[in-house]
């Protein structure tokens, strides 16, 4: 950003929407408040009301129905610190985020680069890769339970290629259930990653790629030193999106493994549901919700900050 004052002689470098123009310059003539107010009141009303209410409930020992709720202050929060399932859920979330983010980024970026080369049937491949994103986890859960079953397609393929040793009931094994949950998630979200990387690559100036080629940079070097840095904005947005997504994870583990076996696929979302709805510990569930919300906001801020610091280098 330059601090030079913009005079009429030099081109205005701000974004088009920020132009000083009669529409934005006029004295309060064009108050835009009525345009944003309906959406704002609706969203802020429902969401901030719910957050406030949840903070209040989190200080109670309550089943959600009985008229007698016992105020316990921070009791729910201290209970949480001593709850091994809570810590296990956090650990699963961290592993889940790290693995799905790295794999989806690798697959999405590579697929986008391949589709930007001259390949046949690009649209067909694109549609196949994106379709999982439009399907409901609830719809696909029965399919995946079958897919990873003892006599399912995965084990059949493994046996067919002579990898019998690997074939086993994937979802019933506490050692592999989390891996399956991550595989399903990667299957579902790589399409979105791919489309966003594909779009980001379309915006790279062909001259920059050309220049790298002239310097005799090979395909891999060009991708790593030219294309990958040019897509950094997309990578950061996706890091944030997948971090929040990992914290919110509910549908897939709930429907495919119900958090088991032995809590091995328990996430914060499934645990909140188990505590709040199944066991009617509404107060305790609310306190975990608040921790979840704080983590989501803190994570988003940290990722955003880290990005700005690197951008400033």
């Amino acid at each position: 950003m330059t601090t030079k004052s913009t005079t009429a002689a030099e081109p205005v470098r701000t974004r088009p929407g920020r132009h000083p123009s009669p529409t934005t310059r006029g004295r309060n003539r064009l108050n835009g408040l009525p345009w944003i107010l309906p959406a704002f009141v609706f969203v802020a009303g429902l969401i901030y009301y719910s957050v406030g209410y949840t903070v209040y409930i989190s200080t109670l020992d309550w089943d959600g129905l009985s008229p007698t709720a016992v105020a316990v202050g921070l009791g729910n929060y201290t209970d949480m610190l001593a709850d091994p399932v809570f810590w296990a859920s956090l650990r699963h979330t961290a592993v889940f985020w790290a693995v799905t983010f790295v794999v989806q980024t690798f697959l999405g970026f590579t697929l986008a680069a391949i589709m930007h080369s001259r390949v046949r049937l690009a649209t067909l491949h694109k549609v196949i890769i994106f379709i999982p994103t439009v399907l409901a986890p609830a719809t696909m859960a029965p399919v995946f339970r079958l897919f990873f079953a003892d006599d399912g397609m995965v084990n059949n393929i493994l046996r067919a290629v002579g990898l019998d040793a690997l074939a086993h009931p994937w979802l019933a094994d506490a050692g592999t259930a989390l891996t399956v949950i991550m595989m399903i998630t990667i299957w579902q979200w790589t399409g979105l990653w791919f489309i966003l990387y594909y779009a980001a690559m379309s915006q790279i100036e062909p001259e920059i790629i050309e220049a790298a080629r002239l310097d005799r940079a090979g395909n891999i070097r060009t991708l790593w030193y030219v294309v990958w840095p040019a897509c950094r904005g997309t990578t950061v947005s996706l890091a944030m999106l997948s971090f929040i997504g990992a914290l919110k994870t509910f549908d897939v583990p709930y429907l495919v493994t119900t958090g088991g076996p032995y809590h091995s696929t328990e996430f914060l979302g499934t645990y909140i549901y188990r505590q709040g709805i199944r066991q009617a510990h509404i107060g305790y569930a609310a306190s975990i919700s608040i921790v979840l919300l704080v983590l989501a906001i803190a994570g988003a801020i940290i990722i955003g900050r880290a990005n700005r610091r690197r951008a400033g280098e």
Partner: peptide, 30 residues
Amino acid sequence: GFSKLRIRGKEIYFWMMIVALTLPEVILLS
């Protein structure tokens, strides 16, 4: 409104909305 019109404290309203992006559904249940 956010992009083209004049609103006092526009970015505050905007960020209050964006924070809601981080909100998980489960928090709304109770």
